[in-house]
Design a protein around this nucleic acid. Structure first.
Lengths: 236, 236
DNA sequence: CTAGTATTCAAGTAATCGATTAAAGACTTG
DNA sequence: CAAGTCTTTAATCGATTACTTGAATACTAG
């Protein structure tokens, strides 16, 4: 944006309008990077240190830190210090709404997105995912459903569905015996573009379980105003 | 984004995730420019030709066209041809939601935005704006309110509040006599970051009218599911 | 205070972006 | 089909972006 700074400096009416809309654009600019969006998607599940974010997104620590500065400058995330490490989190629920709105529009209007989603998440679900409403109804009726949170244990601790048990995807294979074969297993993770639950359901189905995926993840559940349980916070 | 294209080309799991989130980012990228956001804001009020958009945003026609291609490539706008000219419009209501969400987050978290908004729109309203709910209540009660749409006549024709009369800002000064002095005048335009209604209210107040601004514009009214009247379409 | 860990900053480089200008396309009208 | 209008494309150039590497900063523990 070559002239942007020049035009923004003006103070007449057009210049003021330009400057105002450039400011809105700066926010979009902060979201205009796939790695930053991955970071936002992870942070929607709870705060993280720079190092963990870097590990989860496959970025170098320095690079992750730089991305976090970009998000911080526009107010999308905030941080708190705990001893030598720094935890980042989304500024508030509206930031998550924005990310959800963005990906929703992208998914609706861009064929590329659903193709790439299939490529990443695996082919379409063999079974329809369970909707939030359906899950709630079945839980209330006392039907036989087991809800499994397959995210890392830390995220389960930061907040999870009330009836859920925690079996991180990495541990699922060796903890299959903890799951009942006479009930349906419903797995969830970080959201519709997180691969954990997809993988978990495939693994469970191959092992002979009746398993389905919750339509989306914990952040969406929380955003829908449904109850979430958090465990006692760990401070280093 | 130097490596983006390389990484996107991979087909392993990380590469697939990278490609997927890069695709989301492409949408944000399209919004990451102040001029394109101005275009979106105008288009929320109805379709426009390239030439008109260029005039309204102060861009050259070629430049406006290029921005429109960017928006079109990601599916934010679509176009229809009418003889020699081409009309662009927002793809659907969700695109407007996204823009609104973006500017809402920006306004909430960034002090710069409200400063720049004041600089562009003039100091804070001397009177609180009228909320949609309040206006509806007063209209239903038959209280004395006159609603004025101060946008260009074309936009009024494309859709307006049922009780509104059209007096484009440019004509307001010489059409003051059409407005009653014993009623309150409520002016609206394109939205909270459009200067028309602000200017109209200042002009009216200086001319001795009781005038206030509707809290935001027609697109938000429509998005709230409230009734909108459109006049017969003009085809070239 | 020193060593150690976590995070941020700074410099360098390849890729991308945005505006201008000029030329080419697309369609209508005579 | 030729002239005219509206729109798009191509080429160019300065500015910005993202990642890497290496060094600086901030804090804790001993």
């Amino acid at each position: 944006m070559p002239q942007a700074s020049e035009r923004s400096r003006q103070s007449d009416s057009r210049g003021a309008k330009t400057a105002l809309f450039d400011e809105f654009a700066r926010l979009a600019q902060a979201l205009a990077n796939g790695r930053r969006l991955e970071i936002v998607d992870v942070l929607a599940n709870g705060e993280r240190t720079v190092e963990r974010l870097a590990a989860e997104t496959g970025l170098s620590v320095a690079n992750a830190s730089q991305h976090l500065q970009v998000l911080r400058e526009v107010g999308l995330v905030r941080r708190r210090r705990d001893g030598t490490r720094i935890y980042y989190e989304l500024r508030d629920a509206e930031v998550f709404d924005l990310w959800r709105n963005l990906r929703s529009v992208a998914a609706q209007h861009r064929a590329e997105v659903s193709q790439l989603a299939d490529a990443y998440l695996g082919a379409r679900d063999s079974l329809e995912p369970v909707t939030r409403v359906e899950l709630l109804r079945r839980l209330k009726r006392g039907e036989d459903v087991v809800v499994v949170d397959v995210r890392p244990a830390e995220e389960f601790a930061a907040g999870h569905l009330p009836p859920a048990i925690s079996i991180p995807l990495a541990e699922l294979r060796r903890r299959l015996r903890e799951l009942p074969r006479d009930k349906e297993v419903v797995a969830y993770c970080r959201g519709p573009y997180c691969a954990f639950a997809h993988k978990a359901v495939r693994m469970l189905q191959q092992a002979g379980f009746r398993a389905r995926r919750l339509e989306d993840g914990l952040p969406e559940w929380k955003a829908a105003g449904l109850p979430v349980i958090a465990m006692a916070q760990r401070r280093s």
